[in-house]
Nucleic acid binder design. Structure first.
Lengths: 220, 220, 220, 220
DNA sequence: GATGAATGAGTGTTCATTCAT
DNA sequence: AATGAATGAACACTCATTCAT
């Protein structure tokens, strides 16, 4: 595994205490004093390991963001390769025919991988999504929306071109991207365990694909 | 109109300065001192008009929340009355057939009313949605999701019953509710003017209805 | 009666609210804001009737102090007149023989009069004794001790002179004076009703006279 | 000695400045700002050493209260052991015969010890007795009165029982207790030096014992 | 590596008081 | 006689950060 087991070192104790404090109070209201006290360590020690308050937050959150980014990047890369390589047939797999097959949107494996990872770093996920106001990560989810948007756009444009339809409006794609990301975030936020989320996932995908396919209907 | 035009009174100056400061820094980081300074007023004056920092925030935000709530309440009431009064035929209007008609989801009038109102109180809307961390309104959007969920559930249950289908899972409805609210919020957040939003609205509705109708498909 | 019945006028309402606030919080912690709010009156009104915070406190407390002072003054004057007029015989009444009679220290009438008055102005008494820190009255009880000391001294000196004994040391007399006043204050503070205090009074006097007479014993 | 000599450290400077400020203004009116300024230290420094304003006051006053309490406790314990161990004879020493001997109330050693201690912590004593309003110590003297009352009661009850007299009324004993404590406090308050107080002490004891013995007179 | 001490600007809030109307 | 608005200094307290040791 990539993650070191907590070894009770000062740094680990600080990170643990910080996580708890950030979870309870959010970045802005969190108190370094409290963190140090709970870690059983002096303020000076904190500043030996971390440059400042935000750096401390970063140290907790960054690895998770990076890893999630990587999973997504691989997923996008994979879909892109399918797309560029194999023309209209595959396109249907990705888009229109998706809801007629039991493995909607290609397959669920990427979604499951992401979920599995996020649930195993639940606190960090919460920190990123709900407690990062005041840090550079407060727009983190939006960045993912942007990214996903670009991805969706390339798929949609490609599909429309090959089917002789006019392009989906960027605004709509942005909204869809946002909708997708938001659904995923919401699942993790509202469903306590990976196991349950796993069970729900097909319904979610079905719903999202339903909306997605609507975009390519003739009558609009 | 219900809203008084700013008359340059101390209270108005304070509210104006507060709005600006809250917009810039969010509730937690906002400084009352700065607000007073920018309003050209002493700290004491602020406390003559407002009970405390949160009361100041409230005074800006509450009327907008109340009004939006009222619009929604009327909308829900209206749909409920259609539902209870007229059986399966209308149900189709509300649900399944929606995407086959140009007035999806009944009609767009409620959505437009809400949008028109929110755009005319843009700053307040931003404050509620993005700057209210640390106040009692930080979960405000979630409350709307909950509310909408109850509404969707009654519609869905009623429809399923009359069509002999098994109920939609609560979790799915919750997700859909969240998705809908999130889309609307996102439009206001990302589209600068009401005029543009108005143009986009049909696409949005089409997308949302698409997802919604998927729920009632046979094959899941 | 000297005391006007509260007529619900603004001034009366202020005095009433002030009394309550001063009782609860003492002079220093008392808030004029709170007083005005409870009186249902604005701050400005308060400053129409009273010069400042201390003046407000004074207005409540001064009449009671004055009246108590007057009662005492009459008592002292009366005892002085007995003293100057009638030589050694009366002296015994006042002092040494006191504890052999059932009406110790002359009689209890003065004490009863004072008690009756204080109990009928209980709140004001508490204010003077326990809540006046920060006002010019915070040493009020000490003034009474001083005054009583002068009185005791004249009695003691006169007695000693006429009995050929050497004078009681001023320090001792001061202590005795303090002891007496303190006992009286303590009774009012610890015994809730005049009726009960009246019952206890003889024991108190017996105790005080016991100590007082000790001063004139031969063997010291 | 238990007390460290002021070493000019920040904490010592703060305590010194605080003592001065509390003496001048009492707890409530004392300003932490002023204290820090006079200590030549920033506000933050104060809060490194003390939890809050009251903790600062406590740190000055608590050791003295504790020590005085201890001295008294030992004294009470000693008297109790005499009482339980040796019957009526000693009882006379403690009570009735006290005024016929030159070492009234057993001996003066406890009183002297207390005085010596209090005079060597004069400022702290003043703080406790006169400047503690608003802190948990404002009723401190009353606690001592209560304590002494319980002690007096056990002595008095024991004496009355062994002499076949009916018990002294609790109210009277409470008053006597108050009177004794009050006298002692008053001495320290009014007599500037231990040396003088020492000279006066026999008179004080004589007076107090005089009153005390009166309680056991036949004719009341 | 880590401590303990200290900084100093900043926080929201309360205060008694004033004054034009 | 009384209001409502406003003052401005003061309050206790917290903050992230620094640094000599």
């Amino acid at each position: 595994m990539l993650q070191k087991i907590s070894d009770g070192s000062t740094k680990e104790k600080l990170l643990e205490a910080a996580k708890k404090e950030f979870m309870q109070n959010g970045f802005l209201k969190a108190s370094l004093r409290t963190i140090c006290k709970n870690a059983g360590v002096t303020t000076g020690a904190l500043y030996f390991f971390f440059h400042d308050k935000e750096d401390l937050f970063d140290s907790i959150v960054k690895p998770v963001i990076d890893h999630a980014t990587q999973i997504l990047a691989e997923h996008f890369k994979h879909e892109d390769s399918l797309l560029s390589g194999s023309g209209p047939v595959l396109m249907q797999t990705l888009v229109h025919e998706a809801n007629k097959k039991d493995s909607a949107k290609g397959d669920l494996s990427t979604a499951l991988a992401i979920f599995r990872y996020l649930y195993s770093h639940y606190d960090e996920f919460i920190l990123i999504v709900q407690k990062s106001q005041g840090t550079k990560w407060e727009g983190c989810v939006n960045s993912f929306v942007d990214w996903n948007y670009k991805h969706l756009k390339s798929i949609a444009d490609s599909y429309c071109k090959s089917h002789g339809k006019k392009k989906i409006k960027p605004f709509v794609l942005r909204m869809v991207s946002n909708s997708q990301i938001n659904c995923f975030v919401n699942i993790v936020l509202n469903i306590p365990s990976f196991k349950e989320a796993e069970k729900h996932l097909p319904y979610v995908m079905h719903y999202l694909v339903g909306g997605w396919c609507t975009l390519f209907d003739e009558n609009i």
